[in-house]
């Protein structure tokens, strides 16, 4: 369960999050949808304790992220790429992450296998392609076998097979009762994966509900999205 209540955040004098509230429930994939710069990543950073909100609370499993013991066993997160030091090998990266939360060493091999990086375990992270970095990031998120997954643009840089794999994987994880929150600006992709949708635009929540509710009378999610965010995009192009 992820709960975000009235979160506001100012960065460099600009209000990037304005009273953002939504929740993501277990057993469902919640899509966090918005154009570039709408506040998706900012929200996730607050949720993960990277940035401090100016107001409001963001809880994962009922607690602020910074209060979690061995947080990786509660939340798996993927923010901006793999996050491995460029001169470290994929395996060395996962080994230190595992050690930090007291996770058993065999998980390293398991998650590498799971994301299809077994063959590149001894390559340095700085040499990875964008898609491989994402996979390594996902492996890091899965290390603690967490009930909650928070993924920022997880399909960025993945090839069609990778995207298809990711979609199936996330659906399966939700079916097992996990809470999955993923941000994206790709509407077609989200419509294929999400049960619930939260739309953010210029730092405000523009709509939230089940995929069907958000789509409403519009022919598809994309049309619904532009109707919801009409004020901001009107005439911009």
């Amino acid at each position: 369960m992820i709960t975000v209540e009235h979160v506001s955040k100012t960065k460099g004098g600009r209000l990037v999050l304005n009273e953002v509230s939504f929740e993501a429930r277990p057993g469902r994939v919640t899509g966090f949808l918005g154009p570039n710069g709408a506040g998706k990543t900012s929200t996730l950073r607050v949720l993960l304790g990277m940035d401090r909100p100016d107001g409001g609370v963001a809880l994962v499993g009922g607690r602020p992220y910074q209060r979690l013991d061995r947080p990786l066993t509660t939340v798996g997160a993927l923010l901006d790429g793999g996050g491995a030091h460029r001169s470290r090998t994929a395996r060395a990266h996962l080994r230190w992450v595992a050690a930090s939360n007291g996770l058993p060493r065999h998980r390293v091999g398991e998650v590498l296998e799971l994301v299809g990086l077994s063959g590149d375990a001894t390559s340095r992270a700085g040499r990875f392609s964008l898609g491989m970095s994402r996979r390594l990031g996902l492996a890091t998120a899965l290390l603690g076998d967490p009930p909650i997954l928070i993924l920022d643009e997880p399909v960025n840089g993945l090839d069609p097979a990778g995207i298809r794999w990711m979609r199936g994987f996330l659906r399966e994880e939700a079916a097992r009762g996990r809470t999955v929150l993923l941000s994206s600006h790709l509407m077609g992709e989200l419509a294929e994966t999400a049960d619930d949708v939260v739309v953010i635009d210029r730092g405000r929540i523009a709509g939230r509900g089940t995929l069907a509710e958000i789509t409403g009378d519009h022919p598809n999610l994309e049309e619904a999205f532009f109707a919801l965010t009409a004020a901001s995009t009107g005439g911009a192009w």
């Binding site: 993960l48 304790g49 990277m50 992220y65 910074q66 979690l68 947080p71 990786l72 939340v75 997160a77 923010l79 901006d80 790429g81 793999g82 996050g83 491995a84 030091h85 990266h93 992450v97 930090s100 939360n101 970095s133 990031g137 890091t140």
Partner: peptide, 12 residues
């Protein structure tokens, strides 16, 4: 991407 992101996710 920086290692710090993962570090703080692992040890908030």
């Amino acid at each position: 991407a920086r290692q710090l992101t993962v570090s703080l996710i692992a040890a908030p």
